[in-house]
Simulated scan of single mutants.
Amino acid sequence: MDDIKIGEILLPGEESEQERREKRVKRRFWPTFRRAARQIPFSRDLVAAYYCAIDPKTPTRTRGILLAALAYFVLPIDIIPDVLAVVGFSDDVAVLTAAFAAISGQIKETHYTKADETLADTPES
Rank of each mutant, 00 (worst) to 15 (best):
K108H: 07
R61W: 04
I80V: 14
T110L: 07
A71D: 15
A99Q: 04
I79R: 15
R63K: 15
D91G: 08
P81A: 01
A101S: 08
S104I: 07
L84P: 09
R61V: 04
V93D: 14
Q106M: 09
S104N: 09
R61I: 00
F100V: 00
A101Q: 08
R63T: 09
P76K: 14
I103Y: 01
D116E: 14
S90Q: 14
T113N: 14
V74A: 02
D121E: 12
G105I: 00
D121R: 14
T62R: 08
S104V: 09
K114P: 01
T113R: 14
D91I: 10
Y72L: 05
V87C: 02
V95I: 06
A115H: 02
A98T: 07
A115I: 02
E109K: 13
L67I: 03
F73V: 01
E117S: 12
K114H: 00
G105R: 02
A99E: 06
P76I: 04
F89C: 05
D92A: 13
T118P: 00
E109G: 06
S90G: 04
D121V: 02
L75F: 10
L66M: 08
H111W: 06
A71Y: 07
T60K: 14
I77S: 12
T110R: 11
T118N: 05
T113F: 12
V74Q: 03
I79K: 15
I107D: 01
A71R: 11
A94N: 02
A99P: 07
A69L: 06
L70C: 07
H111P: 00
L70Q: 08
S104Q: 10
V86A: 14
T97N: 11
A120W: 12
T113I: 15
A102T: 09
T110K: 15
P81W: 03
T118H: 13
A115E: 00
I77H: 06
I80Q: 07
K108D: 07
I107M: 01
V93S: 12
D92E: 14
V87F: 15
P81V: 01
T97D: 13
A85Q: 13
E109D: 14
F89H: 09
V74R: 03
A94Q: 04
R61L: 02
P81L: 01
Y112T: 01
D78K: 14
L96Y: 03
T60N: 09
P81S: 01
I77R: 13
G88M: 03
T118E: 12
V95A: 09
G64V: 08
L84G: 04
D78A: 03
T118D: 06
K114M: 00
V86C: 07
I79A: 15
L66T: 05
V93W: 13
Y72K: 06
